[in-house]
Simulated assay, not measured.
Amino acid sequence: MQSFVSLARRVSVAPTLLACVALFILMVMTFFDVILRSVFNAPIEAATELTRILMAILVFSVLPMISAGKGQIAVDLTDGLFARLRLSRARDAIVYLASGIMLIWPIQRVWILAERARDYGDVTEYLSIPVFYIGWFIAASTAITALSMIVTGLLHIFSPQSLPEHSQ
C-alpha cells in the first residue's frame, strides 16, 4: 500500500508542472497583451480564447491533487463534534467516496458535450483549435479526480496510516 501512495505522489508532479506551464504562459500572454494594447493599440486577438483554454488547463490539471489532498475550501463547523466522537475518519471516508461517485455524472455530461463538439467540428474563433480537445481534457481530469477521491476514501477506511498527517 505504501508503494502505491509513493507512486501516486511521484505521478502527481506531472499535473503540477502542466499547471505551472499554463500559468506561466497565461502571465506572459497577459503581460504582452497589456503592453501591445496600451502602447501600440494592437491587442492579441486570440488572448480571450487562449485565456479560457489555459484557465481550464490550470484548474482541471490540479483538481485531482487538490481534491484528494484536502486542499479544497471547507467550513469546519462540526470538526469538534466529530473529533470528540472519534468519527472524523468515517466522515472523511464517506465524504470522499460520495464526492467521487457523484463526479461520474459531470464526467459523462462533459464527455457527451465534447463528442458533440467533435461531431459538429466546433473550433475556437481565432486559432481554430478543436473545442473537443479541451472537453476531453476536462472529462479526463474530472475522471482522475473521481478515481483519486474514491481511492482516498478507501484509504481512510482500510489504510489510514498511509495517508499524510494533514489529511487524517
Score class of each variant (00 low, 15 high):
103 L>W: 12
74 A>Y: 03
7 L>Q: 06
48 T>I: 15
152 T>F: 12
81 L>E: 13
107 I>G: 10
13 V>E: 10
15 P>L: 04
158 F>A: 15
116 R>F: 06
167 S>F: 07
160 P>I: 10
144 I>K: 01
111 W>R: 04
33 D>P: 03
113 L>C: 02
121 G>V: 01
113 L>N: 11
42 A>D: 12
34 V>Y: 06
89 R>Y: 02
15 P>H: 01
22 A>F: 10
93 A>S: 15
85 L>Y: 05
58 L>E: 07
77 L>Y: 13
13 V>Y: 05
137 F>P: 04
3 S>G: 02
92 D>K: 14
30 T>D: 05
32 F>M: 08
25 I>Y: 09
78 T>D: 13
26 L>V: 04
110 V>W: 01
77 L>F: 15
129 I>E: 04
118 R>G: 08
129 I>S: 10
7 L>E: 02
56 A>W: 03
102 M>V: 12
53 I>R: 06
26 L>S: 14
104 I>Y: 14
148 S>V: 01
138 I>D: 05
101 I>S: 13
14 A>T: 11
82 F>G: 03
65 M>P: 00
57 I>D: 02
160 P>G: 15
35 I>L: 14
135 G>T: 11
107 I>P: 08
128 S>W: 09
2 Q>S: 10
36 L>A: 04
112 I>R: 10
97 L>E: 00
48 T>W: 14
68 A>I: 04
135 G>F: 10
108 Q>H: 12
37 R>T: 12
105 W>Q: 09
112 I>S: 13
61 S>Y: 02
163 L>M: 02
27 M>Q: 03
165 E>P: 01
78 T>C: 11
63 L>S: 07
86 R>T: 08
147 L>R: 06
32 F>Y: 13
87 L>R: 12
113 L>P: 00
117 A>L: 02
57 I>E: 03
15 P>A: 05
47 A>C: 05
97 L>W: 07
99 S>F: 14
120 Y>R: 09
152 T>P: 07
121 G>R: 00
86 R>L: 06
144 I>L: 15
115 E>Q: 15
2 Q>F: 00
168 Q>K: 14
128 S>C: 00
53 I>D: 00
37 R>M: 07
98 A>P: 03
141 S>G: 14
52 R>I: 02
18 L>F: 13
112 I>C: 02
113 L>T: 04
2 Q>H: 07
